[in-house]
Design a protein around this nucleic acid. Structure first.
Length: 261
DNA sequence: AGAAAGCCTCGGCCGC
DNA sequence: TGCGGCCGAGGCTTTC
């Protein structure tokens, strides 16, 4: 479920814990999968004081008096602070809270708890996450960085949709946001990145920034203009053209066969 | 039954 | 022909 906009709201929620001291932390074997052992999280976080929060793409960061902590939310992860969700409700997957879907978290000396609620178990905790593997953050991306990200040194490169989803190129764009940006810019998601014209890049950059800004205001990645057409047999809300479906960059992709070329 | 808004690994093959 | 790296396929996991 969560893309960069949702993770940003989780971060804002986590910001409320700045100043608190961790009395206890726990993680199930799945959320601890990127750590040396299941016990690593509990051992590392005990006694730390929260000093700040951060984020790079879909990776949420918690700054502490010790190591930086990282949280990833996979497809269905939600951050909860004492039962208060980082976003309003669960938009995708089960619209319910179940105690057994809490995969780990942090408990503070004031009694509050920061919890990872994640039915599908694809969320992960990290300690001192490696930021070098991630590209520049999508929400603060500059035009210069965007041009660099869409410039291929050899060959045609992967389809632009796949390129947008590549977290080492730009961090934060997920499947829905990627489709929405291309939809607005009128670009076929299959276009090899290296074949984009200067004009197309210009247009995509504008829609990149506007999409993030607008959807953030509307309340999340699922509020895009083409969302209603994300269904088999869907019709483009712009020109009535047939929506096409295929898998690009490993994700189901919807685009308009008429205005996206 | 099949797909799902993320990420990781693996192997093929492209291009120098 | 050799090799590093790009890129797509598949798997993970559970739910609806």
């Amino acid at each position: 479920m969560p893309e960069i906009l949702e993770i940003e709201s989780y971060r804002q929620l986590a910001e409320q814990t700045v100043g608190a001291t961790i009395t206890r932390g726990w993680a199930d074997p799945y959320s601890a999968k990127k750590l040396p052992s299941v016990k690593s999280w509990a051992t590392a976080v005990k006694g730390l004081r929260i000093t700040g929060t951060g984020r790079r793409g879909k990776l949420m960061l918690i700054e502490t008096s010790g190591p930086t902590l990282g949280m990833r939310f996979g497809m269905t992860g939600v951050l909860l602070l004492d039962g208060e969700a980082g976003i309003e409700g669960l938009f995708y997957g089960p619209h319910t809270f179940k105690k057994e879907w809490v995969r780990g978290g942090l408990e503070f000396s004031d009694g509050r708890r920061l919890l990872l609620h994640d039915p599908r178990r694809l969320g992960r905790f990290e300690i001192e996450p490696d930021l070098d593997e991630l590209g520049p953050d999508a929400l603060t991306l500059t035009k210069k960085e965007f041009i660099a990200a869409t410039t291929i040194t050899r060959g045609g490169g992967a389809a632009i949709k796949a390129r947008l989803l590549d977290q080492s190129v730009i961090a934060g764009v997920g499947n829905l946001l990627g489709d929405e940006m291309l939809f607005r810019a009128g670009i076929d998601p299959n276009t090899p990145t290296g074949h984009l014209t200067t004009q197309q890049k210009e247009s995509l950059y504008k829609s990149f920034k506007l999409t993030l800004k607008q959807l953030q205001g509307r309340g999340g990645s699922h509020t895009g203009n083409h969302m209603t057409a994300r269904t088999p047999g869907g019709v483009c809300p712009v020109d009535g053209g047939p929506m096409r479906i295929s898998v690009i960059g490993g994700r189901t992709t919807y685009w308009c066969g008429q205005h996206q070329r």
